[in-house]
């Protein structure tokens, strides 16, 4: 998918202000930002739901609007945020309805339900479904017709931790089949280890774009060493690190926490080797996606 110099203006308000983006086949791409950052607007323009003020969005080289809209939309799967499906239909009927509109085979419906673990509830009315089951049904709907690209808006809302893990397992399977996935999430801890790349949006613009690791390096946020060591060796630690550019060192109980810049990381590790087996445990804390996010979006 290619997004080229896309703008969306509402009068003087620039909801999306010159976004360029390319997502490759089989990539799991995250789009994050505060509410009002412009990601929903961008999402809707990618789906062809909202006209652009200017710019171009191509999916497999074709536009989701205009004369090619039907063929492009047959290749798209979409799960909107907080969607409420039809209470009076069963899970299976819901999928049959959407598969007809999508021009997909009705034979796709049961396998889609099976994929999200709803086979047993297929013939129950949606009104009897829990919030998590509804979300999974919405996801099954997005999988109809073997889409080549999936747009998932806050897809794990209402899912319990186990269902979230299953959800990302399914996404990995789809990725392996070459499906491109674009998702938004407010739960940064959940996506930081799972997306291939992500974009951070603020004020209608992409403020940062890349892998989580690349963004950490770009932000140059400090990292932490948590050392577990007997209290009598605290001074040894201080002495070993004395000449290094350490920005903070805190000691309490059996722990010493050391904060340093990324460029000092290897030097600290080498210095700690001088503890000669006195160290009981060591944990290196990289800045979280949340730290990176606030760094870029503030």
């Amino acid at each position: 998918m290619h997004v080229r110099n896309v703008h969306k203006h509402y009068g003087a308000v620039h909801a999306v202000d010159g976004v360029d983006l390319a997502v490759s086949r089989g990539e799991l791409f995250g789009l994050i930002g505060h509410n009002g950052a412009g990601k929903s607007t961008l999402f809707k323009m990618m789906l062809g739901l909202l006209p652009m003020s200017s710019g171009e969005i191509l999916i497999d080289g074709e536009s989701a609007t205009g004369s090619t809209f039907r063929s492009v939309r047959q290749r798209i799967g979409y799960l909107p945020e907080n969607v409420v499906l039809y209470d009076n239909l069963t899970g299976l009927e819901t999928l049959q309805f959407f598969s007809r509109l999508k021009g997909a085979s009705s034979l796709d419906c049961l396998p889609a339900l099976e994929r999200v673990g709803l086979t047993d509830a297929a013939r129950r009315r949606v009104r009897e479904y829990s919030k998590g089951m509804r979300q999974r049904l919405g996801f099954a709907q997005a999988l109809l017709g073997s889409p080549r690209i999936l747009f998932l808006d806050e897809p794990t809302t209402g899912l319990d931790p186990e269902a979230i893990r299953e959800f990302y397992t399914i996404l990995r399977g789809l990725k392996a089949e070459g499906v491109t996935i674009v998702l938004t999430s407010h739960i940064l801890a959940e996506i930081q280890e799972r997306v291939d790349r992500l974009a951070i949006m603020a004020n209608g613009r992409i403020q940062a774009l890349g892998t989580v690791q690349a963004l950490r390096e770009q932000m140059d946020l400090p990292l932490w060493f948590d050392i577990r060591i007997a209290a009598q060796h605290f001074d040894t630690v201080r002495n070993l690190l004395g000449d290094l550019p350490i920005s903070a060192i805190e000691a309490h109980d059996e722990h010493v926490s050391v904060r340093c810049g990324r460029d000092a990381k290897m030097a600290v590790i080498e210095a700690l080797a001088g503890l000669n087996g006195k160290m009981l445990d060591l944990h290196v804390r990289e800045p979280s996606l949340e730290d990176v996010f606030f760094g870029f979006s503030d």
Binding site: K44, L47, G48, L49, F69, R70, S71, R73, Q74, I76, Y78, P80, E81, N82, V83, V84, L85, Y86, F98, L101, K102, G103, Q141, F151
Partner: peptide, 13 residues
């Protein structure tokens, strides 16, 4: 209001 309009309009209709 229930959020299904966007979903319907994202389909080939």
């Amino acid at each position: 209001e229930r959020g299904s309009l966007d979903l319907l309009l994202s389909l080939p209709i």
